[in-house]
């Protein structure tokens, strides 16, 4: 690894000023579970590393007054895993955080790093997309928010502008009668996903879908949304025919490639199956939430 200068500023302003001095040559460091190896193997020309871990504004998990949550960019996978409030409302996110590496990785890996690293197989990113998360980015000029769906433009490419960093993630409140679920397929427990999928649905009083969103990981250059799902499901019961439609829409949304983990064809098939399972399980959880189990 090339040598670099290391800074661990205690304030956001200082971190942003350091990044502004030489944007291209500077990397922000969160848990380092992606960056360390990227610097080791890709030989990325990094001159300056700015460690974010001492900046208080980037930490914390808080429920928002109108519902929903604010998660600081430095939130650890292990903190999400242990958070009872998140588990009750957003099991899709908690389940995804729980499968990131082993315990020592989850004690370092941050949510912000998972998102900014922009890997198409980033597990925690898939439920966030299905849940319609918003990001708050900050630069010396101030803050701006953007939908997570607009954040990734390709593998390892995100929409942060020079001098900007990711401050926090905002999870919207689930709609009335809403629930979510996460599904993942790997070759072995510790490997990264061959495909992952997450769904967020809500049901109306008759028990039919009122809304539905799903996202797929590892089947395209970025984590993808399943287009047209809400329109196809609205007002419909969760029947085998409707789940078949979920499968078709997910297969159509997938843009998989062949690699050492799986062929494109297998990935597309599994995207369909996992999306179907995620929608079905989210729908079941929504029903249980309404108190009419089965």
């Amino acid at each position: 690894m090339q040598n670099f200068t290391y800074h661990a500023p205690a304030s956001l302003a200082e971190a942003l000023a350091l990044k502004n001095e030489d944007d291209a040559g500077t990397r922000f460091l969160a848990g380092g579970t992606d960056l360390f190896l990227a610097m080791e193997f890709a030989g990325e020309p990094v001159k300056t590393v700015v460690d974010l871990k001492k900046i208080p504004e980037l930490t914390g998990i808080e429920e928002l007054p109108g519902g929903g949550y604010r998660l600081g960019a430095l939130t650890l996978m292990g903190q999400i895993e242990a958070h009872q409030g998140l588990r009750a409302q957003y099991p899709a996110l908690v389940d995804a955080a729980t499968v990131v590496g082993g315990p020592p990785i989850r004690n370092r890996a941050t949510l912000g790093g998972n998102i900014c690293n922009a890997s198409p197989a980033a597990d925690a990113s898939t439920p966030l997309l299905a849940l319609g998360a918003e990001l708050v980015a900050v630069s010396a000029e101030g803050e701006r928010s953007l939908p997570l769906g607009d954040f990734w433009s390709g593998p390892r490419q995100n929409a942060l502008k020079p001098g900007e960093l990711l401050k926090e993630v905002r999870l919207p409140a689930l709609p009335e009668g809403g629930a979510c679920a996460f599904e993942r397929l790997t070759r072995s427990a510790m490997d990264i996903a061959v495909v992952n999928a997450a769904a967020a649905v809500s049901l109306d009083d008759a028990g039919n879908f009122a809304s539905a969103q799903a996202a797929l990981g590892a089947v395209g250059p970025v984590v993808l949304t399943v287009d047209g799902l809400g329109d196809a499901l609205r007002g419909q019961p969760c029947s085998p025919e409707i789940l078949e439609q979920v499968r078709k829409l997910a297969e159509a949304a997938a843009q998989p490639i062949d690699d050492k983990r799986a062929s494109a064809e297998y990935r597309r098939d599994m995207a369909g199956v996992l999306a179907m399972r995620a929608v079905e399980r989210a729908q079941l959880l929504a029903r249980q939430g309404k108190g009419d189990e089965k």
């Binding site: 290391y6 661990a8 460091l29 380092g32 360390f36 315990p103 020592p104 004690n107 370092r108």
Partner: peptide, 11 residues
């Protein structure tokens, strides 16, 4: 518990 191979000593 952390893996010390992925952490810079300065951290």
């Amino acid at each position: 518990l952390v893996t010390s191979c992925l952490i810079f000593a300065v951290e």
